[in-house]
């Protein structure tokens, strides 16, 4: 019975899209996409280049406005909500190119994210030392993600993999309900991939994660659900074994990977 309750809680849909369409001047980049993102699960969005994965991402986070369709976050309609507000509601994204504040230190990067939820963002009359009380929480996050040794380094001086980890730490500072990661492993060495995969697996226990990813072994290892996009439409959906066995998916990838 407890298991059933847990099961039910875990299969709760937190983000859903219905009939999502995005047209750019006559070109349909995303066509009739339906998605359900569940609490406690890692959902992968894969597909060949130009399949529309990043566009779907931008639509869900409202960085782009859908031409048609409806998006719901935690039961409320966010189809017309501006991106900063969506972020405040708990849907936080990362970017394909690493999104850090390069000339701020690691700690300052995390503190920027903490400032808004702590109500310390608009005070132009307070000294910088008023932000000291965010140090403890920032440092806890930094330690948790293994960046303790880099705390006072400028973000620009970190390795590529660590920049992505810092980005995740910054994102987690917001305690998001839904985390959207755009190619978190892109351009990373093998060592970093394993580290980031572990981090993602850990953070997904308390929230929903949707990630665009090209590294299929990562997808196979950590993702519960996979959606394959091709030319803006959903080609297949299911767990990795089901999807990878689908002949249409194989054809779509063969054409691309060969």
């Amino acid at each position: 019975m407890i298991d059933a309750a847990v099961e039910q809680k875990e299969s709760r849909v937190v983000l859903s899209a219905r009939g999502l369409v995005k047209e750019f001047a006559g070109f349909t980049a995303v066509n009739d996409v339906n998605l359900d993102i569940h609490h406690g699960r890692i959902h992968a969005l894969i597909g060949p280049n130009g399949a529309g994965k990043t566009t779907v991402f931008n639509l869900l986070t409202k960085f782009l406005q859908p031409t048609r369709g409806r998006i719901e976050l935690l039961g409320s309609d966010i189809t017309r909500t501006p991106p900063a507000k969506v972020a405040r509601m708990g849907l936080v994204r990362s970017f394909q190119i690493s999104a850090v504040f390069p000339n701020l230190t690691v700690r300052e990067n995390v503190k920027i994210a903490l400032q808004r939820p702590s109500g310390l963002a608009r005070q132009f009359w307070l000294p910088l030392s008023s932000l000291d009380r965010l140090d403890a929480r920032a440092d806890a996050l930094i330690d948790e993600l293994g960046l303790a040794g880099w705390r006072d380094h400028r973000a620009a001086d970190l390795s590529y993999g660590r920049k992505r980890v810092l980005e995740i730490a910054t994102t987690l500072a917001l305690e998001p309900k839904v985390l959207l990661l755009d190619e978190p492993m892109a351009g990373m060495g093998q060592e970093d991939v394993a580290m980031v995969a572990d981090i993602i697996r850990n953070v997904a226990t308390e929230r929903a994660v949707l990630m665009v990813e090209h590294n299929l072994s990562v997808v196979a290892n950590i993702c519960h659900q996979v959606t394959v996009l091709q030319r803006g439409e959903i080609l297949a959906e299911g767990d990795y074994a089901t999807v990878s066995a689908d002949p249409r998916v194989r054809t779509a990838y063969m054409g691309n990977d060969a």
Partner: peptide, 28 residues
């Protein structure tokens, strides 16, 4: 004071990476 304040930090972050500041929930 304006530059070296919590508000100033957010301004700095917007100058460094505006998209990221939006994605952290700031109405830039």
């Amino acid at each position: 004071r304006f530059v070296n304040s919590p508000f100033g930090m957010i301004l700095k972050s917007i100058r460094e990476n505006e998209q990221r500041a939006i994605s952290l929930g700031y109405s830039v």
